[in-house]
């Protein structure tokens, strides 16, 4: 996905592309991905769909009178499964993007965005600390104004903010102190901690800098 151009005005596109790149990045750092939560959701969802399909076929072939009772049970079962599915998605996964282990270290990352706020919010839970780490960064840090994803500043942000990733990717974690080709000194200091109000202007200021 990273080589595809996206619309930088679509928050969905920004988030989905970044999510994909986040997972790719961690896999490339030889984190072993654990998909069990997604698998549970898929299983529940597909069982529900299969129940609906069977109901549909039975209704189509046998008619209403013959399938009345079965349909009643199917409707109840479907409602329960759908409830479980929704619960799992909102209460268990909570925007989970990547869960995996490297050696004895376990990391689980959930992402979210807020409406009309081009900032990427991450909740990082690691095995080493009990409190989840909340970090955020404007999308403009790793998206060009015409919608291309640039991996380097993104990976650097993760490597410097999350200890477990930093340990796995020493190169990017160390780059923070040195001069950088992609991100200017001012941006490095300013943007990662920028508040939501500031981040909206990110694109404009970037353009201004290029011209000067």
């Amino acid at each position: 996905m990273s080589d595809n151009k996206i619309s930088p005005h679509s928050l969905n596109d920004l988030k989905n592309t970044t999510d994909d790149c986040l997972a790719n990045y961690l896999r490339s750092l030889s984190f072993v991905q654990d998909n069990s939560k997604l698998d549970v959701r898929l299983a529940v969802g597909y069982v529900a769909v299969i129940i609906a399909t069977i109901t549909f076929v039975a209704d189509y072939k046998l008619g209403w009178e013959a399938t009345k009772l079965g349909t009643a049970f199917a409707v109840v079962a479907y409602a329960i499964l759908n409830g479980v599915y929704t619960y799992w998605m909102w209460m268990v996964e909570k925007g989970l993007v990547f869960e995996g282990t490297k050696g004895s270290k376990r990391v689980s990352i959930a992402s979210k965005t807020k409406k009309h706020d081009p900032t990427y919010y991450l909740t990082v839970t690691t095995s080493s600390s009990t409190n989840p780490l909340e970090i955020q960064c404007p999308f403009t840090t790793w998206f060009t104004s015409d919608g291309y994803f640039v991996a380097q500043p993104f990976q650097q942000w993760l490597a410097t903010s999350v200890g477990v990733i930093g340990e796995a990717d020493q190169k990017n974690a160390a780059k923070n102190e040195k001069e950088d080709l992609f991100v200017s000194e001012a941006e490095l200091n300013g943007t990662p901690s920028a508040s939501g109000a500031d981040s909206g202007k990110g694109k404009g200021t970037k353009r201004g800098k290029k011209k000067s």
Partner: peptide
């Protein structure tokens, strides 16, 4: 270019929209 699981989730999204509409109708029937 989606991961197989992501593709499965995407297809599931679509299937759930259809099946929920159908099951709502059947629920009303019941």
């Amino acid at each position: 270019s989606l991961q197989p699981r992501q593709l499965a989730a995407q297809v599931l999204n679509f299937a759930l929209v259809l099946s929920t509409a159908f099951m709502l109708w059947k629920g009303l029937s019941v």
